[in-house]
Simulated assay, not measured.
Amino acid sequence: MPRASDTRQSIVDAVLRIIGQDGIAAVTNRRIAKEAGLSLGSVTYHFATQHELLRESLLHFVAEETRHFTELADACTDERFDIGQAAEAVAQVAGGNAFDSRHIAPFELYVQAGRDERLRAAAAECFAAYDLLATRILTQLGVPDPERLAGAAVALVFGQQLRRLATGAPAEELVDTLLILTRFSEAETP
């Protein structure tokens, strides 16, 4: 018999897949139960409300993203860090060439956090991890005032990701975005 934590995780994984495939509006208990291979009663037993489901899904996503981006940031401390390594880090952020439901779900969750202030703290935690990675990369590249520019770098990358999602633009444009930011920052240096 599966443990309660395994069942909850199966439900959360199903919610994230559904959000990525068809959006938050498609998240229903029946759909979750079918996607997770569980009974409808199991879904309602583990999550009493839709808000609880979305919050738990966002928190799970945030924990995974924070871990992943912190690991990437920790890898960006080599003294010989260069633009090539920065490009590799950005490519890892981009997640390869396929833009599947796993890449779409975060955008849906962040939009939902914008509508529901109870989810904003979790979203802010994830953006703090993005900012940390951006700060480390910018620092290693010698960009002046990296903490101040980190949020802009994250916004540029997110904008490029959204553009990629909407248009099918190639992942390489993310590297171009990083290069533009570093060149702009270097030009500002007196």
Score class of each variant (00 low, 15 high):
Val154Gly: 02
Ala123Lys: 05
Ala134Asp: 00
Ala94Gln: 14
Ala94Ser: 14
Ala91Tyr: 04
Ala75Lys: 10
Pro144Met: 04
Asp82His: 04
Leu119Lys: 04
Leu133Tyr: 01
Thr77Arg: 11
His68Val: 05
Ala123Cys: 09
Ala87Gly: 08
Ala113Arg: 07
Ala129Asp: 11
Ala122Glu: 08
Ala122Met: 08
Leu72Ala: 10
Ala122Tyr: 00
His103Val: 08
Thr77His: 11
Val90Arg: 01
His68Leu: 11
Phe107Gln: 01
Gly84His: 05
Gly84Asp: 14
Phe81Pro: 11
Cys126Phe: 01
Tyr130Thr: 06
Ala87Cys: 09
Pro144Gly: 04
Glu71Phe: 05
Asp74Ser: 03
Arg67Ser: 14
Ala87Ser: 10
Phe69Lys: 09
Ala152Phe: 01
Ala129Glu: 10
Val90Gly: 05
Leu132Lys: 01
Asn97Pro: 13
Glu108Pro: 00
Glu117Ser: 14
Val143Leu: 04
Gln112Thr: 10
Gly151Met: 09
Gly142Pro: 10
Leu132Cys: 11
Arg102Tyr: 12
Ile137Trp: 01
Tyr110Lys: 02
Pro146Gln: 01
Phe69Ala: 05
Arg102Leu: 11
Glu88Thr: 13
Ala113His: 07
Ala91Gln: 14
Phe99Val: 15
Gln92Thr: 12
His103Pro: 03
Glu108Val: 02
Gly84Arg: 09
Leu132Asn: 13
Phe69Val: 02
Ala152Ile: 07
Ile104Asp: 05
Leu133Glu: 03
Ala98Val: 13
Ala75Asn: 10
Ile83Val: 13
Val93Lys: 07
Ala94Asn: 11
Ala124Ser: 13
Glu108Cys: 09
Thr77Ile: 10
Asp82Glu: 05
Ile83Gln: 05
Ser101Leu: 13
Val143Pro: 02
Gly96Met: 05
Asp145Ile: 02
Gln92Cys: 13
Arg67Val: 09
Arg120Glu: 12
Ala113Pro: 05
His103Asp: 09
Thr139Ala: 06
Ala129Gly: 12
Phe127Thr: 10
Ala91Leu: 15
Leu119Cys: 02
